[in-house]
Simulated scan of single mutants.
Amino acid sequence: MRRVKVFSGSSHPELAEFICEKLGIPPAAVSLKKFSNQETSVEIGCSVRDEDVFIIQSGSNHVNDHLMELLIMISACKGSSASRITAVMPYFPYSKQSKKKNHRGAITAKMVANLLSVAGVDHIITMDLHASQMQGFFNKPVDNLYAEPSIAKWIQDSVPEYANGVVVCKNAGGAKRVTSLADRLKIDFALIHADRSRGAHQAHRSPTVPGTPESEVVGSSDNNMNSDLFCYTSNTTADHIIPAIVNKKFDNNGEDDFNSSTSITTLSVDEETSSVITLVGDVVGKVVFIVDDMIDKSGSFIVAAEHLMKNCKAKRVYVIATHGILSDDSIKEIDRCRSIHQLVITNTFPIPSEKRSQSSKLVIIDISATLAEAIRRTHNGESISYLFHTAL
């Protein structure tokens, strides 16, 4: 590619190296350092006049330092007469703060978008924004790429029995993401909901389904129903498991028609948090993929996996996320969890080698080819729609 400069920030040099290798060009020279008073210093080491500049800087554990470094790099290139500056941010920092969580909170993701615009960025390339509406925070073009094609390809190549699997969403907010992956793989999906407000005593009550007669709610295995449809547990919370038939179908003679489309609701109580955990869907004897856009703390993933394996009799559980933040000891906690078979993430977020070695379950999908192709197509003025549904 002619008249292109690709710079790497200090947040994720490994990913930047992979991208440059696939583009067939070396990273452009830049000096990044800190003064003795911890101020960030940036010095561009080559001419960028009338060049198409791409700066690769992902979010990281040192989010504030690396964000400031990116802003200074953008400003330095702008002041050096670059024709266009594109910030390649595989993981967008502060993306979890995309709305007010309380009355006096801040929409920090919007502030970051404003900072990038003020610094002089002309275009942003990112991947799997926490909320797709964040694209409206910018007054510059934003290309939000998807890791879904690469994740789907990994599942098809690495999990032989995936066709008998279920994609599970651990909270209602990620339902759209989960159904999209399930549609791509042509398999079922299910939903987990943890309600901390109901308390443990609520688990003894039968779930109420609008329009369903009380006689249709099954509360024990003594009923003359197909026992394979229900999920029970063998641990101390057995008394708190309440299966229920939802969306029950009937044939022309009014008889019960239990088929694969029947939806199961299973309730159990997490005694540590006193929350009611609800699974809507059937996972008995199936491979389960718990999917989310990021995994920061491991707690909710472990609770979901334990519920699926112990209470709902799933065959095996994979935890899959685009951005593997894995704060504190999350990776060790997942490695110790017997209910999780593998943890699958992409390399959008930098993970030190010492942290990778802490888990034998960790699988990292390389998405550098997708980002490199997005850079190439952006430079050549080509459409990137191809990347939304194709794994490279």
Score class of each variant (00 low, 15 high):
R3K: 12
F7P: 05
A16W: 08
A16Q: 08
E17S: 15
I25D: 13
S36G: 10
Q38N: 13
T40V: 10
S41W: 01
S41G: 10
D50A: 14
I55D: 02
H62E: 12
V63I: 11
I74T: 00
A76G: 00
A76M: 00
S81R: 11
V88S: 00
P93F: 08
S95V: 11
S95A: 15
Q97W: 00
Q97H: 01
S98W: 02
K100W: 03
K100Q: 06
R104G: 04
N114D: 11
S117I: 11
V121M: 08
T126N: 02
A131E: 12
N139R: 07
V142I: 05
D143A: 11
L145M: 09
Y146Q: 08
A147G: 13
K153M: 05
Q156W: 03
S158N: 12
E161N: 12
Y162K: 04
N171W: 02
A175F: 10
A182K: 07
A182Q: 12
D183Y: 06
R184G: 13
D188I: 04
F189Y: 14
I192W: 06
I192F: 09
S197F: 07
A200C: 04
S215G: 13
Y232L: 15
T233Q: 12
N235A: 09
A238V: 14
I242S: 07
A244G: 12
D256I: 14
T265R: 00
L267E: 03
S268M: 07
V269Q: 04
D282Q: 09
V284T: 12
I290F: 07
V291W: 02
G299K: 12
I302Y: 05
I302V: 11
A305R: 04
E306L: 07
E306F: 08
T322F: 14
I325E: 15
L326C: 12
K332H: 14
I334M: 14
R338Y: 03
Q342T: 09
S359R: 14
K361D: 13
I364R: 08
I365S: 06
R377N: 03
H379K: 07
